[in-house]
């Protein structure tokens, strides 16, 4: 049997208004053979976790610009754990200061991509994280 596609949830928590970056990443993942469930803008951590569980995704990607990452990302991780889904890897992209990035990684975000990251790096990292979790 051929290996089924990796299912990834791309969501954008927080209140900031546009999702161009998230859409570009979504398209790159699709072109690499991922099935991308695009949850869209202004998702609460509760909605994100619920979507991840209903869609039975292998991995979650969060994008943020508003600076609320220190509040929202750990909340997503905590809710996943509460639902016994702490094994789903979570990566993040956006404008995140180095110090915050270190703390988020410690909290369990598996990879963090700054604005300069190549799409290729995002894709290969997502592949590696999803396959190693499976």
């Amino acid at each position: 049997m051929v290996r089924p596609p990796i299912r990834v949830l791309i969501a954008k928590p927080g209140l900031d208004g546009h999702d161009r970056g998230a859409k570009v990443v979504a398209r790159a993942l699709r072109d690499a053979g991922f099935e991308v469930i695009y949850a869209g803008l202004r998702q609460t951590p509760e909605e994100i976790v619920r979507a991840a569980l209903e869609e039975d995704v292998d991995i979650i990607g969060l994008s943020i610009l508003s600076g609320a990452h220190m509040a929202l990302f750990p909340k997503v991780l905590a809710l996943l754990k509460k639902e016994k889904a702490g094994d789903i890897p979570v990566f993040a992209g956006g404008i995140i200061p180095d110090e915050d990035a270190r703390r988020l990684k410690k909290a369990g975000i598996r990879a963090i991509f700054g604005p300069g990251t190549s799409l290729e790096e995002i894709v290969t990292t997502a592949q590696r994280l999803a396959r190693s979790a499976a």
């Binding site: 699709r30 072109d31 099935e35 469930i37 869209g40 979507a51 869609e55």
Partner: peptide, 14 residues
């Protein structure tokens, strides 16, 4: 699904 990559963007959930 994309006939080229086999991937897809599923956006109905929005």
């Amino acid at each position: 699904s994309s006939p080229y990559s086999g991937g897809s963007v599923l956006g109905d959930r929005i």
